[in-house]
Each structure stands twice: as C-alpha cells, then as structure tokens.
Design a protein around this nucleic acid. Structure first.
Length: 308
DNA sequence: AACCTGAACAACCGCTGTGAC
DNA sequence: AGTCACAGCGGTTGTTCAGGT
C-alpha cells in the first residue's frame, strides 16, 4: 500500500467528533486492539514500516502497518525499544552522575534529562530513578525528595561516583598504556561539559563551567576532603538540594577557604567524618555495576547520621 | 522442588500542549 | 474562538525473573 492510498484510507478517521479517550475505547472495541507485551512479529512489522515510511502520525501508522495497536503503543515501543540508537545495558557511573546532577536541577523532567544522555530513554531513566535511587532513599528511611537525601546524593554519592570514574579511567590507562579503554569513560568534568544546554536552560545561571570546575576538584580530591571542604559558606546557598548556580568556582578550585567545615546545616549530619568506603565494600575501581553504591556498613553509618 | 519476595523493566493511562481546521 | 486529533510527558501498573527461604 503506497502513501497515497494510505492517506485516502485514513481520511475516514479524522474529525469524528469523539474525544480522544472515547475514540480510543471505541477503536479498541471495534478493532480488538492488542495490549501487553509486543511479539517479535509485531516488532518486525513496526520496524519495517517505519524503515519504509518513516515515523510520526502514530495512529495512522498503526493502522497502515496493520498493527492492532494504538498509535501511542507503537510510538512507545519504537522510542523505548526498537529505535536503532537505543542503548541497552547498565547505566554507567558517568550516566548515573549525570542523572543525579540533572535531576537535582530539573526534578522529574525525564524527557529533558534523557535528551542529555544519548541513547537513553525517559522511561529508562525514570525506571532507574524509581528502582535504584528511590530504593536507597527507602533504605535510609528518608524521603527521596527530602533535603536530607538530596544532600546525601550531592555530597556523598556523586563525589563517590566521580572517584570511581576517575579511578577506572586511571586503571584503564595504566593497564593499557596508549590504548583507549573500552568504555572510554568521560572525565567527570567532561561529562558536564558535554551537556548541551538549550536556550531555555539559561535558568541554570550559566553554572556549568563552574560545575565543571567543581567536579574537577571533587574528582581529584579524596571523598573525606570533599565532605570536609566542599560546603559553600555565606549561608550555604543551597536551594532545593543544589547549589543554585552560585558555587564559588575560584574558591572551590583553590581548595582552602570558602567552605565551611561545619558542612551540612542545620543538622550537621554529615560533618562527622566519613567511612572508609573502599574497605567497606563500595566496590573497587572499575566496578561499574549499578549496585554496590552503598554497602551495609555505609547504610549503618548513614542511618546513624540521619538520626537527628 | 515449591513458594515467596522484591528488583528491574515494559507497557499502559491520564493529562497537557500544540497545531490544524 | 472553539473543537478536534495528535504527540509527548510523567505517573502508575503489570510482568518477568532471580534469589532467598
């Protein structure tokens, strides 16, 4: 069936006067639309059709391709699974770091966050957040949206990820001098440099270069030092768990001065030192599983800190 | 071996924004 | 200006599977 005849075929479906929900329900009754997991045959049909005709006009596409699916279902299947550039597999530490950072800035704007992670879908990032990140919050008995947990991510989790990325990068360079590591992990600072900000991101206060400087500093600094020194002074300046774009770059890179040792106000729950994460099972450099971010010991320590 | 539980992922649902008419 | 279809987004639910008991 050519495109022309398709258009003629579709004409009868336009302007039918029903609301979307009613139309969808009716269509489902009349055409016995399929639901649930996609079969291999359906996948092939969809891929073949899009290869030949392109994507878009999903309701039309579904009918024209002969799929007993709603347009929404076809779109979702294509975008989240069948698209050639979809990346499968574990979320890398670099990606985790970026997700954490972007979520702290944008909240549950999954599609916006996904745009910064090539090949990752909003659904995948959303699932990652719900299953991994929220799990940690639950284990720590604090709300994922609480300041406590946000601070925890920003000052414990993210620096730790940066360390792991740097360590893995260094290991790869040592093991294979002159040969690129298979993963070619980005340096922490580079991760943020690679984020392409659209014009509407001007609300981020132009802080990415500053953030890069900070991440540079963090990645070359032991975690305990980070915890001790990376808190901004002048009232903390932490808004909604992020630095609000006012991180004093020069002071951060300079190290001495500019940051309060009192660390987290008002409770100071993280200013009492830091456990030896290497020894307590956070996994060594190069352990890139998405698990092992927190060991049991880590949780015990953190839970103690959170009892205030 | 059977059952239970929870993690991970896929898919659906409801709502909103947008463009065409 | 109002209505409609559609695309897209975020929240939620369903399914599968691995690990534990």
């Amino acid at each position: 069936m050519g495109a022309g005849s398709t258009d003629v075929f579709l004409m009868g479906f336009n302007d039918n006067g029903y609301s979307q929900a009613v139309a969808a329900a009716q269509a489902e009754e009349e055409t016995d639309l399929r639901r649930g997991p996609w079969t291999v045959e359906e996948d092939l049909t969809l891929v073949n059709y899009i290869t030949n005709h392109g994507e878009g006009r999903w309701n039309s596409l579904a009918r024209s391709a002969g799929l007993k699916r709603t347009g929404k279902s076809c779109r979702l299947r294509w975008l989240n699974y069948l698209r050639p550039d979809v990346r499968r597999g574990n979320i890398t530490p670099e990606e985790q770091l970026l997700i954490l950072e972007l979520h702290s800035r944008w909240g549950n704007r999954w599609s916006k966050i996904a745009q910064q992670l090539p090949g990752r879908t909003d659904n995948e990032i959303k699932n990652y957040w719900r299953t991994r990140v929220q799990k940690h919050a639950k284990q720590l008995k604090c709300d994922v949206n609480s300041q406590k947990f946000k601070d925890m991510m920003r000052y414990l989790w993210m620096p730790r990820l940066m360390e792991r990325i740097s360590a893995a990068s260094a290991d790869a360079a040592t093991a294979n001098p002159g040969v690129s590591a298979p993963m070619e992990p980005l340096q922490p600072a580079a991760i943020f440099d690679h984020v392409k900000l659209s014009p509407d991101n001007s609300s981020m206060d132009g802080s990415w270069s500053e953030l890069s400087a900070v991440t540079d500093h963090l990645s070359s600094t032991p975690v305990s030092d980070v915890i001790d020194h990376c808190m901004p002074t002048e009232g903390g300046n932490i808004v909604n768990g992020v630095y609000g774009g006012e991180f004093p770059t020069g002071q951060a890179v300079g190290g001495a001065g500019g940051y309060s040792d009192s660390f987290l106000s008002p409770s100071g729950y993280l200013n009492q030192g830091f456990p030896d994460f290497e020894q307590s099972g956070w996994g060594g450099a190069g352990d890139f599983s998405s698990e092992d971010l927190w060991s049991d010991d880590d949780f015990c320590f953190l839970q103690e800190q959170l009892q205030y």
